[in-house]
Design a binder for these strands. Structure first.
Lengths: 218, 218
DNA sequence: ACCTGAACACCGTTCAAGT
DNA sequence: ACCTGAACACCGTTCAAGT
């Protein structure tokens, strides 16, 4: 990020940092949907339009917020064994995102997370190369892991949100109740267990399966 | 869905079907963001509030839309070999969704697609069982495949949208330009190829890797 | 340079009333 | 039962003006 050089002019009353901090607090307290330019302006004690002097627009603010969050995460010490390192890095990526499910909203495009968390893709690509993949294969492996991870976060965050929206089991239960056992025998057979199974966290198992398929067998 | 029994009263001027058809057309033509209750009302020639007599609310409308779309898809004839069947079903699921990236918006929760496309999870769970997994394992396998698939769709749809928003390479290129080759040697090394690699469709390769890891080796 | 005030062009949804 | 009109409680962002 370019440091702004202050060369005179009116001193700023609100700073980019203050805006991001306030935004972060609002999101943490009330959810992403509650983050509006107007409420944020109230929070920092300024007009909505004052914000536009410090951030490009709302989506720029969200990017800043993601980065702010990423900065707070420290790079762990990785295992020596490359396959284990890859798994550990992916799990870290997952946990960092899962802790704040609002990031799902922002993620829906960029595949590198954030400038402040480049050590994550670096670790994964590096581990994949150490496992014997070419650089290009390693990038593709990273992308598959990223899709799986982002999908898990987004889907589970959405599921949690719907659960929180009290009308708890509106759609899926209705679907299961209506399942035609003649046409869909397997689904009918697991219908009773589906909700329980869907609640289980199987991120790691799926990841290990994916890694097993992506990496050369030793 | 419950069929509404008309027992007198004023005849309806607009039907649920007409609403869904108009909504589908708006979304196809102008994108999901352009679908508002007001524009939709204009399209069917009624007041915004008239719509609320036929759909619960906007998110109910989106669910209806997803189902409308799912109904148009025919179940293919699957390969006999179960592993191939599983792959084919997942690819179908992917292609159905990828054809209309707006579904990504709706997907962010329900893990069964739609009542009208239950044959898809059925095929995948069935194939997984035929490959030797228990029912519970098969459901977990389905969920991993679903996360990977939905993640791919959502991320790639988001990427395409940002590309369309003309300011083409706003964020990621900037990130790559600033990469510190000392700290992130692997990323710096692939930086030049990243955009090209990220543009490639590697859904199937990732899927096969995932399937290889999920299914027992024969 | 930084900030305000007023306005523009929208949203989804509720509520009371009309036929 | 179905639909309208008016209103409520919001949005993000532009633009011209103030200090």
């Amino acid at each position: 990020m370019v440091e702004r050089v202050v060369k005179g002019g009116r001193p700023a009353r609100i700073s980019r940092e203050a805006i991001v901090a306030a935004a972060s607090m609002l999101v943490e307290r009330d959810g992403v949907d509650a983050l509006t330019m107007r409420k944020l302006a109230d929070e920092v004690g300024a007009t909505p339009m004052a914000l536009y002097h410090h951030v490009r627009d709302k989506s720029g603010l969200l990017l800043l917020l993601l980065d702010h969050h990423a900065q707070a995460v420290e790079e762990p010490v990785w295992p020596d064994e490359p396959r284990e390192k890859l798994i550990a890095a992916a799990v870290t990526m997952h946990d960092v995102l899962a802790a704040r499910p609002w990031v799902a909203e922002v993620l829906t495009s960029d595949d590198l997370l954030s400038v402040s968390a480049l050590w994550l893709p670096e670790a994964i690509v590096d581990a994949a190369v150490a496992c014997g993949l070419t650089e290009r294969q390693a990038v593709h492996a990273y992308r598959s892991i990223w899709y799986y991870t982002a999908g898990e976060i987004i889907i589970r965050a959405g599921a949690a949100r719907r659960r929180a929206a009290e009308g708890a089991p509106p759609y899926r239960d209705q679907v299961f109740a209506e399942i035609d056992a003649e046409r869909y025998p397997q689904l009918a057979s697991v219908a009773g267990e589906w909700v329980e199974l869907a609640g289980q966290d199987t991120y790691r198992e799926g990841l290990e399966a994916l890694a097993a398929g992506l990496l050369p067998s030793e």
